[in-house]
Write a protein that binds this DNA or RNA. Structure first.
Lengths: 133, 133
DNA sequence: ACGTGTTTACGAAGATTGTCGTTGACAAAT
DNA sequence: ATTTGTCAACGACAATCTTCGTAAACACGT
């Protein structure tokens, strides 16, 4: 009913798209062949290519010529994509409570004392930042 | 190539599906009309019904008769769905680092001192739990 | 010049999602 | 009994995602 469908907004990634983006974020860039190898070669060459073309059309990746191949690289930062995904989850699943999200996160996995210490310092920094402003 | 096709596994929710699940998690249960109202009546009755039918087929919700209407209720807990979604994000976007996820989370939003205190105690609890085992 | 291998481009097929229109069941009011 | 209003079921349709097959472009070795 609402005359929506801007098409130019970020939006989320689908499963396969996220697989591909994950590789580019981790490696920095990649050709079709490189991305495909990173995915364990479980999908065909043209499938990976198609994903990259779709992602490029969405504005999520770009490419430059390299020899006779294309080298693709991410145009959206993983942190921004992650922030959107987290916001979505906090709102839709944890009813806006970041605490519950954190509780679920630490419940599901084991952390070393060092990791927990670093997470505490992240909270410390956030607190100080809150004081300043 | 892996001979999957389990169909019985959890999997993730799409955007609209998550909208509907969010309502059921928050309210506990709902009829089609109730869910539709909770979504601001921006989608048609039959659309909401279809979503609930798809979700039921996926095993995410169930229903019981109530008068002449159906009352739908979630069969998967929000915490478990949230845990899966978080695992996915940590792995695909934050390279397995929960710390980075937390950093992004606190970067994107403002927290009160109380909220941060509660998050610290969540970490404390996780630490103690780690000691015990 | 010719074949071979690598790579992109085109486009189609199948699955899933999201949106409804229409129909039929059923009960309450008349 | 007939009408009316509520609600689920069925099926259609368009959009999107995912997977490729096939073709075309191009460089390289011979």
């Amino acid at each position: 009913m609402t005359g929506r469908r801007g098409r130019r907004e970020p939006k989320g990634f689908t499963e396969r798209e996220l697989d591909v983006m994950s590789v580019l974020w981790r490696e920095g860039s990649g050709t079709v062949t490189e991305v495909r190898q990173a995915l364990g070669e479980e999908v065909g060459y043209t499938t990976v290519l198609k994903m990259l073309q779709i992602l490029e059309e969405k504005g999520a990746v770009g490419h430059e010529q390299e020899g006779r191949a294309y080298r693709y690289f991410p145009l959206v930062e993983s942190v921004r994509a992650g922030g959107r995904a987290l916001t979505r989850i906090v709102n839709k699943i944890f009813h806006g409570s970041a605490e519950r999200l954190l509780a679920t996160l630490v419940e599901d996995r084991e952390f070393t004392a060092e990791e927990i210490a670093r997470m505490r310092s992240i909270l410390d920094r956030a607190e100080r930042r809150g004081d300043e402003e």
